[in-house]
Each structure stands twice: as structure tokens, then as C-alpha cells.
Write a protein that binds this DNA or RNA. Structure first.
Ligand SMILES: [Mn+2]
Ligand SMILES: [Mn+2]
Ligand SMILES: [Zn+2]
Ligand SMILES: [Zn+2]
Lengths: 145, 145
DNA sequence: TATACTAATTGTAAAGATTATAAAGTAAGA
DNA sequence: TCTTACTTTATAATCTTTACAATTAGTATA
């Protein structure tokens, strides 16, 4: 079922001059099955059992390739490391400031914000990003002792 | 005229147990007069004429103090270094992806986005961030050769 | 299947930003 | 002026990410 998206990704890679390697396949598979938004190090640690000699550079190299063909999106939150999302459809994230949990959040609008910004600043607007911060239900409950 | 905001900031620091030092004063003054959104290194370089022996750690230490009392805001853009904004009133930023220029942008709404996110995710929402990306007028003109 | 070409991986070094630490200096109140 | 706790300085350390060169290995072709 979820392998459908993975298969599509593999096909789209094959259609370019990107070679398939066991490491590359494993990284892609891990990303497409991930329910979270893993860091490069998460991926590296998750696969070190299967590929004891894999270099951390391989993880970064592949993430760059996947980004370039549009298969994954990089989420850059100020502190610490980038996170990667194999869901490239338009969606936002709600982030818990206490435990770091990241939840997908769909919202329709915000096109008008881009339009207004374009008018006011004379920029040629291409995209925007938005995140919502707060406390997840679990962390919020804990804080009410 | 702009010294009014600076004076308020100095007073608010004095009202706590934060001591005033020449370095601290200079960093704060630079931030409050800055029209751009400088990085820690920008500040460090701008003041090295006046304080040849100032440590880069002093810049970071003070920025942390200023953040803690709410005098400045840290802007974390994925790649490279954080930027700092002495304008802590609610506003957004429009960023040029070519030259890095950052322009302030005021927009009223987005409270409903927080409300909806709260309902959908059961998070206790505290804040949100949004930036708009594109090409500034100058860079856009250049690309049309 | 063997060959050849080129991309990919590996291991390590390097870069860049930020933080930690300890010693020395100094602001501010008594 | 004295005292004390806060601050600065200098430097090392940490963390993430990238660069590099040598080795390995996909894939197209004969
Ligand atoms: Mn997501
Ligand atoms: Mn601003
Ligand atoms: Zn949480
Ligand atoms: Zn520009």
C-alpha cells in the first residue's frame, strides 16, 4: 500500500541518470515509511545495522539527490539539525516546543498573503513557509501537574 | 528619535539584575540602530574597531541575554547563521533567495490558522512563524537580462 | 559474460556556527 | 573603598554539514 509511493519514487529515479544502490534504496525506503520527520543522523543510525560500513556522507549525499529531484523536502528548524519529509505535497507543521514532536497540518489559504507581500514589497514571490509552535497534548497535560 | 527605543531597552535591563558594560551597550545600540537583520558575526565585525579585544563569545552571551528579556528576536533560517531583530513587534519577513535581503512585512491575520491548528491537533498553540521567499526587485530585474 | 565508463560510497579531514570552560576583569551596591 | 557576583576574554570543544581523494560498484555496451 505505502510501497506504491516508494515504487513511484524508484521509477522516477530510474528515469534519470541516478543509479540505484543498496544504500540509496534503503535510505529512500526508510524515508518513505517514516511516520516522523527524521534527521540525517536518525537515518544513519536506523540503517547502521543493515549497513555497518555506510558513511554519514552517503546519507547526506543521497538526501541532496532526493531533494534535487523533488522526492523529499528539507525542514530547517533553527537549532540543531535539518529534518526530512518524504511528503512533498503542500502541508504545514505543528511543532511541540517541549518534546520536539512534529505533526502534519493541512490548511488551504495563505495565497493571499503571498499576493499582498508581492504588492507591498515588489518582490517576485515564489513560496512561503509557516510553522505553528506550542505544546502537544501529552506535554501540555504534564505541565498541569 | 530612535534612541527612545534604545533608552527603554536600557531601562528595562537596569530594572533587572543585568549589569551594563561598554560591550553590552554597544551591541544593544548597534542592534537598535540596524536597518538590516544582522548575524552575530555582523555585530562582531561591526564593533571590532571600537572593541579590538572583544570576544565573539561576548556577542553570543549578550544576544542570549537580550533574547531572554525579550529585547531581541532570533531569526533562524535553515542554512548558515541566525539573524537578530530588535523589532519584537509582530511582523513577518520577505526574503530574497538570491541576495539574502530581508524585508519586514506586516500582515494582520493568521490568528485563525492558530485556532484551527489547535482544534485539529489538540496542541496548546503558543505562536507561529511565517516567511515569504522570492526574488527582490533588484535581483529579479537582473534575471530578465 | 566481460569490458569500460562513470557515478557512488567510504573514510577522513575541514569548515562553520555555536557553546563550554576557567581565569581575569569589572559593575554596582554596601 | 570593599566586596561580590556578574561579565569578559581566550581558547578548546562540540555539532552539523561539506569537501576531497581513493576505492568500489552500477549499468550500458560489445
Ligand atoms: Mn510533514
Ligand atoms: Mn524584522
Ligand atoms: Zn510534546
Ligand atoms: Zn535580492
Amino acid at each position: 500500500m505505502e510501497n506504491h509511493r516508494l515504487q513511484e519514487a524508484l521509477d522516477s529515479l530510474k528515469s534519470t541518470k541516478v543509479r540505484m544502490t543498496p544504500q540509496r534504496h534503503a535510505i529512500l525506503e526508510f524515508l518513505f515509511n517514516a511516520k516522523t520527520h527524521p534527521t540525517a543522523d536518525d537515518i544513519y543510525k536506523a540503517l547502521e545495522g543493515k549497513f555497518p560500513n555506510m558513511s554519514v556522507a552517503t546519507v547526506y549525499n543521497n538526501l541532496r539527490v532526493f531533494k534535487e529531484v523533488g522526492l523529499v523536502r528539507e525542514l530547517t528548524y533553527g537549532d540543531s539539525s535539518s529534518r526530512f519529509d518524504s511528503n512533498t505535497s503542500d502541508h504545514y507543521h505543528v511543532i511541540c516546543e517541549d518534546c520536539g514532536k512534529i505533526v502534519d497540518f493541512h490548511y488551504p489559504g495563505l495565497d493571499e498573503v503571498e499576493t499582498l507581500a508581492e504588492h507591498v514589497t515588489n518582490f517576485k514571490v515564489k513560496e512561503h513557509r509557516m510553522e505553528i509552535y506550542g505544546a502537544c497534548p501529552e506535554c501540555h497535560k504534564l505541565k498541569q501537574h
